[in-house]
Computed example of a mutant assay.
Amino acid sequence: MPWVEVLSLLAMLAGCALWFDSFQSREAGMRAVRAACAAEDLLLLDDTVALASLRPGRDDEGRLRLRRVYRFEFSDTGNNRRNGQVTLLGSELVALHLPHSERSRLRLVGTADDEQNRPFPRLPS
């Protein structure tokens, strides 16, 4: 086999290995995002993550891995879009960023039961 064919075959194998590793990392990121959205009672929009950054990085043991940052969109009220991101080193979760939701700023003002138990009289309409 000539050396050009051997190099081409090795490049194709490396590309396939990168694709398979990226597929596994993306699935790990999706699992983390789905779990975080479920725990925070948020709606994951489009049910997907998009690769925003790919660069080399080192793990805790000093091994060289690919550091991937995925972006995704979620909604906290059902009628808005908010951006979040998840960072993976290999297939290991490093960070998950969900900006503060507006839901935490909302508070219950009153219910129908509260109107009957008010200590002050209701003004005529």
Rank of each mutant, 00 (worst) to 15 (best):
S104T: 14
D41P: 03
P119M: 12
F120P: 00
N117G: 02
T111G: 14
F23P: 00
P121I: 09
V4T: 08
V4N: 07
S53E: 14
L45G: 01
R107P: 03
A95M: 07
S91F: 14
P99N: 02
A38R: 11
R58M: 06
R82W: 00
P56A: 09
L106A: 13
D46K: 05
V4M: 01
C37R: 05
G29Y: 10
V4D: 11
A36T: 12
C37H: 05
E40Q: 12
A36H: 09
L88M: 07
L66F: 10
Q85A: 04
F23M: 08
S75C: 01
G110N: 15
E115G: 02
L123M: 05
S25N: 10
D114F: 06
R68Y: 07
L18T: 03
A112T: 05
R31H: 12
V49K: 01
G29K: 07
N79C: 11
P99V: 00
Y70C: 07
Q85C: 07
R34V: 01
P99A: 01
V49T: 06
L96D: 09
R105F: 15
D47E: 15
R118P: 01
V109R: 15
N79V: 11
Y70M: 07
L44S: 00
G15R: 02
R71L: 13
D60A: 09
G84H: 05
E40N: 07
L10E: 07
Y70P: 06
A39N: 11
L18E: 10
D41L: 14
V49Q: 00
L108W: 02
G90K: 06
L66A: 12
L45A: 01
L9K: 07
N117F: 13
M30R: 15
L123W: 05
R67V: 02
F23W: 08
D47F: 01
S104Y: 13
D47T: 08
W3N: 09
L10Y: 00
A52L: 10
D113E: 15
L123Q: 13
R103Y: 04
S101I: 02
F120M: 13
R58Y: 13
Y70F: 15
R122W: 14
P99G: 03
A32H: 09
D41M: 14
A36Y: 06
G84E: 06
S75G: 03
L96E: 08
E73D: 01
D113G: 04
S101G: 15
M30P: 02
D76F: 02
M12S: 14
E92C: 12
A38T: 03
P99W: 03
P121Y: 09
V109I: 09
P124C: 04
S53P: 00
E102N: 14
R31S: 07
L42C: 03
G78E: 12
A11T: 03
E73M: 04
G84L: 09
E61R: 11
V69F: 03
D41I: 12
R105L: 15
H97P: 00
D46H: 13
E40K: 10
D46L: 05
R65M: 13
F72L: 08
E92Q: 14
